[in-house]
Amino acid sequence: MQTILNVNDLSVNFDTSQGLIKAVDNISFSIKKGECLGIAGESGSGKTQTFFSITGILSDNGSATGIADFNNVDLLKLTEKELSEIRGKKIGFIFQDPMTSLTPHMNIGNQLIEVSMIHKKNTKKDALKKAKEVLDIVKLPRIENLLKKYPHELSGGMRQRVMIGISLMCDPLFIVADEPTTALDVTTQKEILKIFNDLKKYKDITIALISHDIGVISEVSDTILIMNEGRIIEKGNCKEVLTSPKHEYTKHLLSCVPEWMK
């Protein structure tokens, strides 16, 4: 299978008032097309910053070095403008906090159609058609009505579905899902994870699933990266790593998962 993302010697630093902080320390990994990579680790392990850095959405005081070869283009060498043409079009994002991640004063329809109108130069009509399609994929009911609603009128689970819908607007090759289920209740979690499984199966989309929850990762991921303090501790096939962890830290992480989930 073809490799879609190949990261080499990636480091991410933040310039803070306490000096330079190394969030990601010289890591390398790759993702194959159509696979789902789970990235596990506690908060502050650098898992989120790894993906924010290669897609250029680090906060202003952050900087990254290394190579991030996506579809034969080194993302770290691109300008902000070139990167913004890839984000949303080839790479979709889903964030942790659905309550605050949608623009409060824009209705759902506009937040969806703006993506394909910008990247694909679609007409409003075509974009609306696409928007209805993606909302159907994420299993949202009463779509016509929904398009005119504002984020505060939706529940957390519905907003997260809209978020996934937004990421699907341009049929991306790759989706970065940063703790997509953390802020949701358990039943909604299950439904969202089912959408991820469907995307993998029917759409052939590559997914990077970032989570501190090993249970969530094991449900969707094929391969897994365990990160701690900005380094990769262990990587490999998801089942193998979880059933027979080699590294102490992985064992420690797994010991935090309740017995019945294993």
Binding site: R87, F93, F95, T100, T103, P104, V115, I118, H119
Partner: peptide
């Protein structure tokens, strides 16, 4: 704020982020 990060992740050009997403808030 988080929704501006979302707008950036959607690949919206900077100028449009400011005019459509930032100013109204």
């Amino acid at each position: 704020s988080n929704f501006i990060r979302t707008a950036r992740a959607k690949g919206i050009p900077k100028r449009r982020i400011i005019t459509k997403h930032v100013i109204r808030s």
